[in-house]
Design a protein around this nucleic acid. Structure first.
Ligand SMILES: [Mn+2]
Ligand SMILES: [Mn+2]
Ligand SMILES: [Zn+2]
Ligand SMILES: [Zn+2]
Lengths: 157, 157
DNA sequence: GAGCTAATTGCAACAATGTTGCATTTAGCA
DNA sequence: TGCTAAATGCAACATTGTTGCAATTAGCTC
């Protein structure tokens, strides 16, 4: 559609990346999938499937919750999103296809969430596992505490 | 009751430890709490509140699910039990009041679960966090992979 | 641009999980 | 043995997650 072609920024770059991945993996780029991607991008905190439904409804858009569940399943399989287990919500992956297991730190005060990779940590974890007779393949890791802002507010400096 | 005094082993030692903690913390030792402790002790895998209800019902015992939720909440607050986030079930803590954050390894094949503490890992995690501007207080860590038995079955040796 | 078809979505019905307020029971104590 | 705060049961409800099948649509061909 010409209108769209003239304004490519109507869809953010972050979302565009995910769309690329959908296409190259042979999945269709549908309106619901784009909408969920947009919500995940805008969200400041992890959002549940029903949160997503509510947020979209506020924009006059409607998606059946089953659809949202299926879309999130797909996104998680493709690592475009992750489920944050300590709160049940979903976030958009901020690391692209960076190798290694994607970890989270969550501020228990403001809810800010930071995703990161730490290869050394992974190695150490795998080593501890072997010592206990396990061969681990995946490390789930979510730390909670205070972000620098919230820490400063409480303890000064 | 004399009967009980003569057969102290009627309640296992593991469970007895937890009962001690309940008492010293000023919580009552009730029949439902003992029953849930027993189920957790016997369980080979994490069990959901409704699992617990079903298991008890098989023994002709009935607990309202609300009660089970409240008991599990308490046990988790006292660290007598933990919720395993990657599967939603609860397990009895096997480390007593051992210092440090209690971590899990889960075999994705047979479901075996191993709880452990690794202080070095904690330190490293805290350090990584500081580098990213976080002051973490708690580390949630659940690794998945294969236990030595399942590994051997698949890859020999 | 119109038509085709497999992939995706919507819908309906249901299952599982989790929560709240209040009446009833009971553990622990005097 | 009774008292009372703590714990449980009950009822009603809210949220979250799942399944099968009919309707729609993205991406392709012509
Ligand atoms: Mn990621
Ligand atoms: Mn523990
Ligand atoms: Zn914060
Ligand atoms: Zn195993």
């Amino acid at each position: 559609m010409l209108h769209l072609a003239l304004r490519p920024c109507i869809i953010s770059l972050v979302v565009q990346d995910s769309i690329q991945i959908l296409q190259t993996q042979g999945y269709r780029v549908t309106k619901p999938r784009r909408q969920v991607l947009e919500v995940l991008k805008e969200a400041k905190e992890p959002v549940s499937p029903y949160d997503i439904q509510r947020l979209l409804r506020q924009q006059g858009k409607y998606l059946n919750h089953v659809t949202i569940y299926r879309i999130l399943d797909l996104f998680c399989r493709l690592n475009l999103a992750h489920k944050v287990l300590s709160n049940g919500g979903f976030v958009k992956c901020t690391l692209g296809s960076k190798e290694g297991c994607h970890r989270f730190m969550v501020c228990r005060c403001c809810g800010v969430l930071r995703e990161f990779v730490d290869e050394e940590l992974c190695k150490k974890e795998s080593k501890s596992a072997v010592n206990l007779g396990f061969h681990t393949e995946y490390h789930l890791s979510e730390s909670s505490g205070l972000c620098s802002d919230c820490y400063r507010k409480r303890f000064g400096e």
